[in-house]
Design a protein around this nucleic acid. Structure first.
Length: 225
DNA sequence: GCGACAG
DNA sequence: ATCTTGTCGC
């Protein structure tokens, strides 16, 4: 497992992404939906943007029951720069994941994997550092373009960077905006979309993300109070 | 040079 | 991400 290194500036951060990108594994199908464990990770920031809380919530993939959860509180040491999000969140996210008492199985995180200017978003980075299969599910199309998917749950359309399909817009609920799924590590795009759809039975976002979001926000309130 | 820009 | 009133809809 590779150790996280905090770059001194944006140029070094981009160089790290260009270097680690070669370690992304794209030829594995990933675990079948509905089996094993699935882990959601998310972070929340305080008003001053200097405290960050990460949460990891492990669910049984079939029942969606909570199996384990962990949080970590850290300090933000890198500014938000589109394309360099991982350097803000990675240290605290890794700490939360390492605090779990079970194997996380498949990880679902906010943001993107291959759908990234250098094809190495947060989900790819997290996958390479942990070795775990990772999916990226974003709420916005970032800098990419797409045609609206059909109106029904399960309808999809390609997320395009020019001619390249870097991810997929997935309609998880009728009457709501799609989410944007991309491959992080050790999973296919088809399977990533199938997992996302299965985990978003009731709401727009996957249950893993919703649980992790609620936990890190609650923990932030308690840590800030 | 200007606009766009995951969280 | 987070700040935030009112407002639309179930």
């Amino acid at each position: 497992m590779t150790t996280f290194h905090m770059p001194a500036d944006e140029a070094e951060a981009r160089a790290i992404q260009d270097s680690l990108r070669a370690r992304v594994v794209l030829d594995e199908p990933g675990p079948p939906p509905g089996t094993g464990l699935v882990t959601g990770v998310d972070v929340a920031y305080d008003e001053k943007k200097d405290v960050v809380v990460a949460a990891a919530v492990v669910l049984d993939a079939e029942t969606l029951d909570v199996v384990d959860e962990a949080t970590a509180v850290g300090t933000v040491t890198f500014p938000y720069v589109p394309g360099l999000l991982a350097f803000r969140e990675m240290p605290t996210v890794l700490e939360a994941l390492e605090s779990l008492t079970v194997d996380p199985g498949l990880v679902i995180c906010d943001g993107y994997g291959l759908a990234h200017p250098r094809r190495f978003g947060l989900a790819s980075h997290l996958g390479v550092l942990t070795g775990l299969p990772v999916i990226g599910v974003g709420k916005n199309p970032f800098t990419f373009h797409y045609e609206a998917p059909g109106p029904l749950r399960g309808d999809t359309s390609p997320l395009l960077d020019g001619e390249d399909e870097v991810g997929r817009a997935v309609r998880t609920q009728e009457g709501t905006k799609p989410v944007f799924v991309s491959v992080g590590h050790r999973i296919s795009l088809d399977n990533a979309c199938a997992h996302t759809l299965r985990l978003a039975r009731r709401f727009r976002q996957p249950e893993t993300t919703r649980r992790a979001d609620a936990l890190c926000r609650q923990t932030l309130r308690e840590a800030t109070a």
